[in-house]
Design a protein around this nucleic acid. Sequence first.
DNA 1: TTAGCTCATTGCAATATTACGATGAAACTA
DNA 2: TAGTTTCATCGTAATATTGCAATGAGCTAA
Lengths: 111, 111
Amino acid sequence: MGVTKTNLFSDVQNEIAVAAKAFAHPARVAIIQYLLKTNACINGDLVQELGLAQATISQHLRELKDIGIIQGTIEGSRISYCINPVRWAEISKQFSEIFDQFAAQQGDNCC
Amino acid sequence: MGVTKTNLFSDVQNEIAVAAKAFAHPARVAIIQYLLKTNACINGDLVQELGLAQATISQHLRELKDIGIIQGTIEGSRISYCINPVRWAEISKQFSEIFDQFAAQQGDNCC
DNA sequence: TTAGCTCATTGCAATATTACGATGAAACTA
DNA sequence: TAGTTTCATCGTAATATTGCAATGAGCTAA
């Protein structure tokens, strides 16, 4: 035990869970916010910005890249990261669909 | 090691991370969606719906309650759960603020 | 080539999460 | 009262996550 029973849930539910993990750690939120702010792509000066070890930042970047919310391009000896607009829109849509779903049914709450 | 270094991040970043955890597991997504669908509050027939053990569901419900996105009221020997509208709106706002932040700056992407 | 960057990966250690059986508290039912 | 239902909590096992030092790959500059 300790393994998430992925097979019990729908594809959409699993997708949302994966996407949410991008925001489920403050370091990753900080990275995303930094990318939003600088807009221009950056590299490991996140290490300076966040105060975590280089290996740790690299690991978080990889997770964000695996989720797809971020993309990196090689630029000489550096790697530029930025937000993946397509994936961003996808995830944004998935979340607003959920959030809107409640806003639409105000009134018949029970507790 | 293994401990999230909460002190390195801003309050908002930590709050977002906590809120995101509500959606970071498919079982919790399923619970939230079920609550959205049934609207009316429910109890442990989530056990039937989801196929996880009663103790596991109870644990997820507690996490959602700790995050505040859900609230429960005692109803005889049962407990009715439903979405907490105030907290829901809060979290919804936090996420849309992030998502909108990118939509507003289209064009100057780098990679 | 050699030295110095920048960053990913590997290999750990520590902690967190997920899941469940067992137990117990509280309320209902006969 | 005794039995049943509903749920939380405890204890435990398995796996996931977080974090870092060390290492290595790939590029740049001298």
